[in-house]
Each structure stands twice: as C-alpha cells, then as structure tokens.
Simulated assay, not measured.
Amino acid sequence: MHAYLFPGQGNQFPGMGKDLFENSGMARNYFKKANDILGFSISEIMFNGSADDLKKTIYAQPAIFLHSYILVKTLGNNFKPDMVAGHSLGEISALTAIESLDFESALKLISIRASLMQKVFETEETGMAVVIGLYDIIVQDVCSKVDGIVAPANYNAPKQVVISGEKKALKEACDALRPGAIDVLNLPVSGAFHSPYMKPIIDDYRTAVELTTFKIPKCPIYQNVTARPTTNITTIKKNLVNQLTYPVLWRQTIRHMIADGAKEFTEIGPGNFLRGLVHQINKNVTVKGIS
C-alpha cells in the first residue's frame, strides 16, 4: 500500500515553487488563483521574499499548502493514495489532495487559521524547540516542572520531541533538557503551535471549519490528534480543531500506517523533513519525495 505525506510549517524556503511557476501553465494558474483568493501576492513572497518573510505564519502556511497542492496536480492520474497523513498544516493539504476539500475552500480555511495564529503570536512571546535523544517521559516530566507554559507539541520520531510554549518557560525547559540530550534546537517558526496558547482562537477556528464544505475523502486520512485513520467528515472536522492544542502524534501515525499495510511512503511538498522522520521510525519501508 502507498501512503502520501504532506509537510507542515517550518519547511518553507525562499524561492519555493518558482520552478513550478516557470515550467507549468497549470502551476501559474494556481498561483494566480491563490493570489486572488488571499488578497495578496503569495507567489511574490514565495519567489522573492526573505527567510524572515516566509517564517511569518500568515505567509508560510499558504505557501506550503500551495507548493504541495500543485505538486499533487502535476502527478495527475499517477496520484493513487491508499492512505494519507499531513504534519500539522499538512493535514489540510492531505485532505485537499484526496478531494475532501476543494482548492479554494482549503486555501480560505488556511488563511483564517494562519491569521488567527498570527494574532496570538503577535501578543505572546512564544516559540518551539526540538529535543533529540531523550525519551518522551523525560521531556514530559521536565516540561511539567517548569514555571510557565511549555509542553510537548510533536512526537516526531523515536527520541525526537518538539516542545512548545512561552519563551521564558521554553528556555528553562531547554536548559534543563540539554545536558542529557543529543541536541536541543530552536525551530524557525513564529509561535507556540499545538499548545495551550492556541485556546483563545479555538472557537473562531471551529466556526471556520464548520462553515467549510467537506466531502468524504477518497481514502483514509490518519489525523494528528489520534494517529488513526478516518473518512468520517464529523471526525475529520473535530480533529482539525483539536489539532490546535493537541500534540501531533506523528511517530504513532507512521507506525499505525505501517501496521495497516503501508510499504511505500511519498512526501509531497517543500523539503524532505518527513522522509527523514519515516526513516528514523522504520528503516524497512520505501521512502521517497516529490518536491
């Protein structure tokens, strides 16, 4: 069985998608549509913006989605997923790829999601860091003892956990974890994703999700908050909302996909981050990428 994976924020880079724009009329049409839907030139920011520009959530999220979606469209009838998953934002890319969402609805929902998150990040000093080389329970224990809000946000791979929270608490947790870890690194994102800091925007985001039309997807999606497959629209919408404050169970997701028959994984979108995670989780499956 063939599983397709879609990356999330943090995989953006200056110049992303420019080769697609230059070599495909279909791609140029989607970039134009995206510019019109968003009300600003995301193509200009992707092609000519700085790394700092693209780090901003309001630009990074639509840019990554657009890059991933156009790559799916270039595959045409060769895109035949048996199952899909997306890392954080990538979950919306995955749902669009399997026709649960149409392009315009997905991009509008992402724009709302990104704008809501950006407002939180503008009022709160928050961030994320990856901890490499420590067991989950150690990371969880240290975070629970820190004075302030910091918590695991992504369980990415064996002994690789991302933590998220306000900067003072995040630094304190990183300092406490660093002596026993292989490495502790701050991530190039503009806020505390998948943490209690997202609670103030849950109601507005839930409203946006409920007002968006979803269709039954053409294959199961393994969602971040459960690591389990579903094609149920009510479940999909509920999990999309919960994703704001719940950790991403990526390691568990990949293991469940493999247990359910996945033998080949293809990452579609900018970067190769998810490919690396799959290799760390299980070296016996085939992993490739389209970027």
Score class of each variant (00 low, 15 high):
A27F: 05
A227H: 09
I182S: 15
S115V: 01
G133W: 02
I258M: 10
G269K: 00
G49T: 09
V285L: 12
Y197S: 05
A34H: 09
V287K: 00
H256C: 09
P270V: 00
A157Y: 07
I149H: 05
E91C: 12
V161G: 05
P220G: 09
K32E: 15
F31E: 09
N48R: 11
R251Q: 15
L185Q: 13
S291W: 07
N242M: 14
Y197C: 10
V189W: 02
T253M: 12
T286W: 10
D36W: 03
K119Q: 11
F40K: 06
L95I: 11
D136T: 14
L101F: 11
Q280T: 08
A60L: 03
A259V: 07
G180S: 14
S100M: 12
T212S: 12
S88P: 13
S291R: 04
S24D: 12
G165M: 03
F21G: 07
N35V: 07
L101T: 06
N154T: 09
G10L: 02
I132N: 12
K32M: 12
A153I: 01
S144K: 14
Q118Y: 05
N232H: 08
A97M: 13
L95F: 07
G165C: 08
M117T: 01
M1L: 11
A176T: 13
I233L: 08
G15E: 09
I201L: 01
I110M: 04
G39Q: 11
K215W: 09
T207C: 08
L54I: 03
S68N: 08
V146R: 04
F65V: 07
P200M: 01
N78P: 06
A60T: 11
D141Q: 14
F40L: 09
I163N: 08
P179Y: 11
G10I: 01
I37E: 08
I254E: 03
A106S: 15
G25L: 13
V184M: 06
I112P: 00
L101E: 03
T245W: 04
I112C: 00
S111E: 11
Q118E: 15
I64T: 05
C143K: 11
Y30P: 06
A169W: 00
A63P: 02
E104C: 08
L71K: 15
F103A: 12
N78D: 15
Q12K: 02
K18C: 05
T245F: 04
T266Y: 08
D52V: 10
K167E: 13
A94R: 02
P200F: 00
E166W: 03
S195F: 02
S41R: 04
V146G: 10
G269S: 11
A259P: 02
L244W: 00
T286S: 15
G148W: 03
C143I: 10
C143V: 11
P229W: 07
V248M: 06
